[in-house]
Design a protein around this nucleic acid. Structure first.
Lengths: 336, 336
DNA sequence: ACACAACTTGGAAATGTTTCCAGTAAACTG
DNA sequence: CAGTTTACTGGAAACATTTCCAAGTTGTGT
């Protein structure tokens, strides 16, 4: 049942060295030979033993993905992007959800599994809060995704810019302007959340447009639909129509849409809403949203890490992703 | 930097075989020798390489914990119980959160890490829904915790009985009786949630007590505090005082407490509440709750698995935990 | 004191890979 | 066409452990 490289070699009529080379994508294998070995592996259903690879080669072809929050659409998509790309490079991934404060310590504790992986992808986490020097206590390559860190390769979205986009779009309309931010209550290891950055960009751009946003027009909800609806109702019932709302996340914008429907307000005319994320369902709902290429960000982070694992040793790199506004029915110009 | 068993052996003045035997708790090592080796390991900060152990011995001393939901207090506590016990037996654990339906497939895919572990702990998951034969497609030992499965060792809480306990306690009081259940919207791979079982037990026992619970007195909320408060308000504002409420989870009961406070109702007299879980904070809040020994359940599951990994090969075992009612201020008898 | 069993122990073999070192064959040189 | 590169390839050594076997040590009964 347990196949080895030996048996593959035998079946393909080559030496074990060659099989190993095929496994590791070495260039110096004749295409024809490679083909033969590969089909032998396929036919036999051979799967290399990662532990043996690790022992022999010092690499385990496993990376650890450390996630702050789990179960939201954003992280699910991010994870898909990461894992898909890692898989393409033949890396396996293990998830380490950061639940409970002391967990990160345990993960990085020398004996544990995370430490045994070849590299680490860390999502949305501000290391500075936890480690004064902003570095993880490990010598493995680390890349940060959905965050920015001086010491490591980072992939980030310009959330501030996204807020600005929303501001410019809403500032053309008549009616009051509101913003709903999100309060990340799960764990306060963050210095500043992406949501804060979005709102900051929004405020700054509105200021520039000559329509400053009073603090009283900003509310903050925890990240769930029920709460979003409560906040939306609060706004919709206590202001004059039309009204314009920027929600720092699509899920929150959805709350606004639902509440507007309940109050028989016409979205796009009475209530204009812009979300943030542009999750797949936003299109169906006709929700204008600030688009962020979540999967692509995950993929980019994976590439950076694979790069490091393949020997690259330059200075930390930063990959900036720029959000863009996708306009839909929820901000149709009334004169259209 | 990378220490090996060789260097430990040298330092302790023994052979590598002996070091290995100490590492694996073999009986046939003289206590004195064992002591010497252990202190050598400690002084050098030696950590055995799990990959090499796996290659050589067929065991990796790693188990996979597959979790349905993550981030709630229950799972955090369960995980603590599991990991602590596994650690005591020198097993490392990797978490596999079940986000996204297809993930379990990927986890068990032969090449992936979960598959490479020695065993699997599966929490709260009803396998029958996913695999017709109710078995995971793997030959590793599996234990189910917070659930019940014919094919595997299972550790479960008698949730139905817990509901009954709550019913007997509330049925003595005057005033209407209500129940608030929880709707697990994350993923519907469950056949029946623990919450349903609690409510069923509650209904059945009330029936026996001659105070049947009308369907209209049962509401269902999603698992968060905001939602719980909404449901609580709904009940408290539309019924006569006193009223008695059974919440299928402490978090929901907390919503009742908070809403009662807001409405200036006295808990224990005007409103009597019983929660479920008896999380640590319940005591402080004076919340009567159905206690479940979460950590102990995790520990029990870990023991069952370790047992299997140590060679035990009997029929699937079932460990039943029985909840008990912890009475506090929220159900103080009015004549007390 | 002797035979025999029961403990301990050291070290070689085995685990499934990667990598290095030759060696062969093919492809260029001039 | 002999002399070099160059491109592949086979297989031994290495990786950090476990396990097995043989050997040594201690203890027991006579």
């Amino acid at each position: 049942m347990k196949l080895t490289i030996q048996e593959v070699a035998e079946k393909a009529g080559v030496g074990v060295g060659t099989v190993s080379r095929v496994l590791n994508n070495h260039k110096s294998v004749r295409p024809e030979t490679r083909e033969r070995v590969q089909s032998a592996m396929f036919e036999m259903g051979f799967v290399p033993n990662p532990h043996a690879r690790r022992v022999a080669g010092g690499k385990s072809y496993t990376v650890s993905i450390i996630l702050q929050v789990i179960g939201t659409e954003f992280y699910l998509r991010l994870l898909n992007g990461l894992e898909k790309t890692l898989e393409a490079h033949r890396y396996d991934s293990a998830l380490f959800p950061l639940i409970g404060r002391e967990r990160i310590e345990r993960y990085l504790n020398s004996s544990t599994l995370a430490y045994q992986s070849d590299g680490i992808v860390m999502a949305t986490h501000n290391l500075g809060e936890l480690y004064p020097d902003g570095k993880l206590p490990t010598r493995q390559p680390v890349v940060i995704v959905d965050g920015l860190n001086e010491n490591y390769d980072s992939v980030y979205l310009d959330n501030r810019f996204g807020g600005e986009l929303a501001a410019r779009a809403l500032s053309d309309f008549e009616g009051e302007i509101y913003a709903i931010s999100v309060h990340q209550d799960i764990d306060e290891v963050f210095a500043k959340t992406v949501f804060d950055e979005r709102i900051e960009g929004f405020k700054a751009a509105l200021e520039e447009e000559g329509r400053p946003l009073p603090e009283s027009h900003i509310s903050t909800v925890s990240f769930n639909l029920d709460n979003a609806r409560i906040a939306a109702r609060e706004i919709l019932e206590n202001t004059t129509i039309p009204v314009n709302i920027f929600a720092a996340a699509d899920l929150v914008a959805l709350g606004v849409l639902e509440e507007a429907a309940r109050l028989n307000l016409e979205v796009g005319r009475d209530v204009r809403v812009i979300g943030f994320d542009d999750h797949p369902w936003s299109a169906e709902r006709g929700l204008t949203s600030v688009h962020q290429p979540v999967e692509a960000m995950g993929a980019a982070a994976a590439e950076l890490l694979v790069d490091r694992l393949s020997g690259y040793d330059g200075a930390p790199r930063k990959v900036r992703f720029e959000p863009r506004l996708v306009e839909r029915a929820s901000t149709l110009h009334s004169d259209a």
